[in-house]
Simulated assay, not measured.
Amino acid sequence: MTDVPALFSLQNQVAIVTGAGKGIGRACALAFAQAGADVALAARTQSDLDAVAERIRAMGRRAITVVCDVNDEAALDELVRRTLTELGKISLLVNNAGGAGPNDPLRMRPHEFVNVLSRNVMPAYALIQKVAGPMREAGGGAVVNISSTAARYAQKHFSAYGAAKAALNQVTRNLAQDLAPHVRINAIEPGTIMTDALAPHLTPERKANMLRLTPLGELGQPEDIAAAAVFLASPAARWITGKILGVDGGAETTTWC
């Protein structure tokens, strides 16, 4: 008989979560800890990390905090080194750092466009490269990249961010081929999620339009993405790699109006 709770357990696993201080990253870190993992938390702000670490330790799990600019490769090396030294291994990775707002394609300079591509793709690629060896040594591992529905929607003012997340999706697919069978790599495309990053743009009119265009009739919460990340990281997803999972309330077109 299948042990369903064990299929979704992350007991005895060690995860790195980037962008772990707020929003989706924080929700993923807390969910992984609830599922049994110890967590290395990486973000730019120590106070945010400390708050998440305190909650994880209250669950009886280990947590370390690493103030880290994921665009600095030396900082990523230090993140990996500290995780191995202080938590003993690396078996899970959530690449959540990144992001960008809307852009005007007639005003955004080419170097600004390249910067959006770089900060959404390079850190994920670099960290996967750095943890692949430790994951093999740990007996295998799983990576979850946080992408966006912007990767597949055609919409105004998202040429930079949409291109960056589409690139991240393709990196996910191709690295999954490269690193199988020891490392599984999948991505999640969040739809409209209620985070601090969204709040400044969420006028009453825009929120009403988003709700109207979302078949499930409500906006997502960071915990919705965290639940999907736990699934993709867990033994329940042992035969899934190179896939992009939309967690978007059923929206098949942009809700950004």
Rank of each mutant, 00 (worst) to 15 (best):
T203Y: 14
I188V: 04
R206G: 00
H182E: 15
L198I: 10
A180T: 09
E218A: 10
I193A: 01
L179P: 00
R206L: 15
M194K: 07
I188G: 08
A208E: 15
T195K: 02
N186K: 08
A187N: 06
E218M: 07
T203L: 11
L211V: 12
Q177W: 11
P215T: 00
A187L: 05
V183N: 01
P222S: 09
T214H: 04
E205Y: 10
L219A: 05
N209I: 12
D224M: 07
Q221W: 14
M210L: 03
G217D: 02
K207N: 03
L216Q: 11
D224I: 06
N186M: 01
I193Y: 01
L202A: 12
P190W: 01
P200D: 02
D178W: 10
L213F: 08
P222H: 06
D224K: 04
M210E: 04
L202H: 07
L213C: 05
G217R: 06
D224W: 10
D196N: 08
L211Y: 03
Q221P: 12
G217M: 06
I188M: 06
M194Y: 11
N186C: 13
G217N: 08
H201F: 15
P181I: 00
T195S: 12
A197V: 14
Q221C: 10
I193T: 06
E218C: 08
R184K: 10
G191E: 05
V183L: 14
L202D: 05
H201Q: 13
E189A: 09
K207A: 13
T195I: 01
P200Y: 09
I185K: 00
G191W: 00
L179V: 04
P200M: 11
D196I: 07
M194G: 13
P190T: 07
Q221N: 09
M194H: 11
Q177L: 15
R184W: 08
K207Y: 07
M194W: 13
D196V: 10
L211D: 01
E205W: 07
G217I: 09
L202P: 06
H182R: 08
V183M: 01
E189R: 05
L219G: 01
H201V: 13
D178C: 09
E205H: 06
T192V: 15
A199Q: 11
P215Y: 04
K207I: 04
A199P: 14
D196T: 12
H182S: 15
V183Q: 04
G191R: 04
E223K: 03
P190I: 00
P200V: 05
H182Y: 10
L202V: 12
T192P: 14
P222C: 12
H182N: 13
D178T: 05
L198R: 06
A199L: 12
H201W: 14
L211H: 04
N186R: 07
K207M: 14
P200N: 10
L213W: 11
Q221T: 11
L216N: 12
G220K: 00
V183S: 02
P204G: 03
H201M: 13
R184D: 02
L179S: 01
M210Y: 08
A197F: 15
Q177R: 10
A187G: 02
L211S: 06
D196E: 15
